[in-house]
């Protein structure tokens, strides 16, 4: 129990530290990497809490997600390396206040609630995975299927939103070139 508390504490501190670093660095790539490390530390917390399947899943999912996020950062940010020292934040005092109030409220609930009896032992990893499989394909099947359909719908919706709108019979490449030519003429 002491070793478990130690590792949960260490990985928790790492998750918080990297989480804070996400918003403190000027480099967007570093932000994405800090978020990756924060999520990986959360996954390690799951492992320390003996939820092996969820821990491995969290680390694998977040490594992929954050790698994609880093690519998007480089694509879309005006200053992805942070060399210009741009400040891309607003309403800082309000945000700090809201974050502090939210965290304080959650901490108060954690500290002052009676959580009831605590289980010292967790089922072993193989049993957990087996029972989770039965849970997913039995009582929680509707939830599981709904989650799958939601992801599929989101993928289709995101692709549909990202594809440029094409008018029938119009080549958007030509349209873009014409618009560019018009802008150039207007600027002259």
């Amino acid at each position: 129990m002491v070793a478990q508390a130690f590792f949960v504490g260490v990985f928790g501190l790492a998750a918080i530290g990297f989480g804070v670093a996400v918003f403190r660095t000027a480099s967007m790539v570093r932000s994405a990497l800090a978020l990756l490390f924060s999520q990986a530390a959360v996954g390690c917390m799951f492992l320390a809490m003996q939820a092996e399947f969820l821990g491995v899943l969290q680390i694998m999912m977040m490594a992929t997600e954050m790698s994609i996020m880093a690519i998007f950062m480089v694509m879309f940010m005006m200053d992805p390396g942070g060399l210009g020292g741009m400040d891309m934040s607003h309403q800082k005092r309000f945000s700090i206040g809201a974050g502090a109030i939210a965290a304080t409220t959650a901490i108060s609930v954690a500290l002052f609630s009676d959580w009831g009896p605590i289980f010292a032992e967790a089922p072993d990893a193989a049993m957990q995975t087996r029972e989770l499989g039965f849970e997913m394909l039995d009582r929680s099947m509707l939830i599981f299927e709904t989650a799958a359909i939601t992801i599929l719908t989101a993928m289709i919706a995101a692709t549909a939103v990202a594809i440029p709108v094409r008018q029938p019979g119009v080549d958007t490449g030509k349209l873009d070139k014409e618009n560019g030519d018009k802008e150039q003429e207007a600027s002259k």
């Binding site: 508390a5 949960v8 504490g9 928790g12 501190l13 998750a15 918080i16 989480g19 804070v20 996400v22 918003f23 924060s38 959360v42 917390m45 809490m49 891309m88 934040s89 607003h90 309403q91 800082k92 309000f94 945000s95 700090i96 809201a98 974050g99 502090a100 939210a102 965290a103 304080t104 959650a106 901490i107 609930v109 954690a110």
Partner: peptide, 20 residues
Amino acid sequence: LALLTGAILFGVGIYGALSQ
């Protein structure tokens, strides 16, 4: 410990979502 970590991550996330 775990609940405190979750609470602080939640607060940091609220700050980030509102300030960026």
